[in-house]
Nucleic acid binder design. Sequence first.
DNA 1: ACTGTTCGTTGCAACGTTGTACTGCGAGCG
DNA 2: CGCTCGCAGTACAACGTTGCAACGAACAGT
Lengths: 337, 337
Amino acid sequence: MDVRLRDVAERAAVSVKTVSNVVNGSPRVAPDTRSRVQQVIEELGYRPNLSARHLRQGRTGTIAFAVPDLNVPYFSELASSVIAEAKQRSVTVLIEDTGGDRAMESTIAQGFSSSLIDGVILSPLALRRADLARTGRVPLVLLGERDYAKAIDHVVIDNVAAAREATTHLLELGRNRIAVIGVDDQETGRQRVIGYREALAARGIPAEAELMPVTGGFTRAAGAEVMRRLLALPEPPDAVFCFNDLLALGAQRVLLASGRRVPGDVAIVGFDDIEDGRYATPSLTTVAPDKTQIARLAVTLLLDRIETAEPGRQPVLAQAGHELVIRESTSANRTKE
Amino acid sequence: MDVRLRDVAERAAVSVKTVSNVVNGSPRVAPDTRSRVQQVIEELGYRPNLSARHLRQGRTGTIAFAVPDLNVPYFSELASSVIAEAKQRSVTVLIEDTGGDRAMESTIAQGFSSSLIDGVILSPLALRRADLARTGRVPLVLLGERDYAKAIDHVVIDNVAAAREATTHLLELGRNRIAVIGVDDQETGRQRVIGYREALAARGIPAEAELMPVTGGFTRAAGAEVMRRLLALPEPPDAVFCFNDLLALGAQRVLLASGRRVPGDVAIVGFDDIEDGRYATPSLTTVAPDKTQIARLAVTLLLDRIETAEPGRQPVLAQAGHELVIRESTSANRTKE
DNA sequence: ACTGTTCGTTGCAACGTTGTACTGCGAGCG
DNA sequence: CGCTCGCAGTACAACGTTGCAACGAACAGT
């Protein structure tokens, strides 16, 4: 049904291999032969059969990008960046939604659909170190966790510094009862807590456990729920630092609904810089990881790892930049209301 | 490097073909042979090489889902549904982001990466009828447009009825200067305008051109911009019906920033039922298309079309359900504030 | 006992591509 | 003038899988 190399070859009166050479830009082709073949390719509308090519080459030119939840804006934005970056290098991206499920993440880390993909970029949520023990079937790059001991490439941001900057910003506004929302048993959260504590410590303010409640999930609902608990404290916070923007938006909604003013009564800082935060009322101050850079680093590391499959290669830890973007939820001058 | 059928066959002392039969669940295999082969498969961790399988079968088991912008929550939510639905039928989904670019959409409709995919589900934004003239390379299902004459399967919702319901809801609140945001030159918008007009006409209210400004894009920014223009009218609207939730959120932000109350001064209805709308302040009344059903219909139609490749098959128009979800942005009883 | 049928299994070929090794040919050189 | 060399182009095999046709063995029916 489809046009094959063979069809082109017959029409152009050359061998199949010569057509293949033209398609692949091999230098061993005379200019006039090349142009003649090119023309026939146009005429017949030839497209290489990728399955055949990949079977022959042992590569598929496809990488997977696995995220916990595609509906979380941070991940969909990151996915767009990864797709764009991969496209520049003529690589196709398969988006996989793990649902934050540990078994699923573990399967993916081991190369799941196997021969369909050359490598995996995985943004883990529930993955444990033990799950990575049996990796190696497929080149792997992890996003956003750094404590896995095994020889696996990572792309991270400096969570400690970012959290410190966010907290310091709130301190500079004169707030001193700063709650954090988003503490769980994962490494990322742990690092952000460290940064938070460092910022407090620098001003001699003690970190209080009641201001660091454990949070279940990273949704607006979770943010709302925790915010309600914080407001019920004898001495509620005058600022909250949320470990992602969804938590922050959920918290903000509760604050506004309770009649409090943001940032007048409670200032809010989020994390991720998702688009929603820019259009919330008030718009959300947030730590903005450089998603473009993260995507570029991840794709680069993965393709490098695919190229040089030697096991001796040292794992790389790449750090992407971040930036504190100050918007209305922490601006001293209120918007009119 | 990888385990092949041949390796399994040698270890189990059967032919390659028998192993293949076991893998594919062919009935012509003796029970004890089957279990023996199964065991060796487990032992060696055999995974079929999909490139080879697909080369042989002429199918890849992969479909593409192309959306204008993966960062638009409606599309990412829809993508999740499509992925889930496809997974149930052991089909892999390739997410493609067209950027709403007409050339890109046209390319995809013609089967772009060719032999990598068996079919395409396309949610067009800028596509014109002419672009579909040269389709047919690849089975195609279109989402959300209905006026393409060619024999192409469609999945739609009843936009006219949905818009009528939304408008009627606003009328029942006692609003009579109802603006619409999201009018452009596309078919979907045109249908929603029809529904809007019908609802007005049913009450003898004339549709005013100044309340139906043309909108560029479906972003929060566009919604904000149009809302500002509407507020500058000599007689501003007391309700707005937005053709998607992002427009509505942008409009709502402008309203709140200008000191107006929602829904007190201006009521808002959106469209799409994205998660953001549920957690906005106030939460957003919206028309909720049944995304799960849309995904199921689209995947079903596409797979049917792939199965029976006969060109004589009639195109199918499948209609998915929708529902008006009433939340705070049109609720009579205000939240405390 | 012999033919016919069924069942489990097998070998072969092919899917479309590309790497390797090779051929034929003209140019350059001694 | 013959030999070598470089270059354009070619033939063949192989990647891992599955459809097809064929095979032998077991068994039922005559």
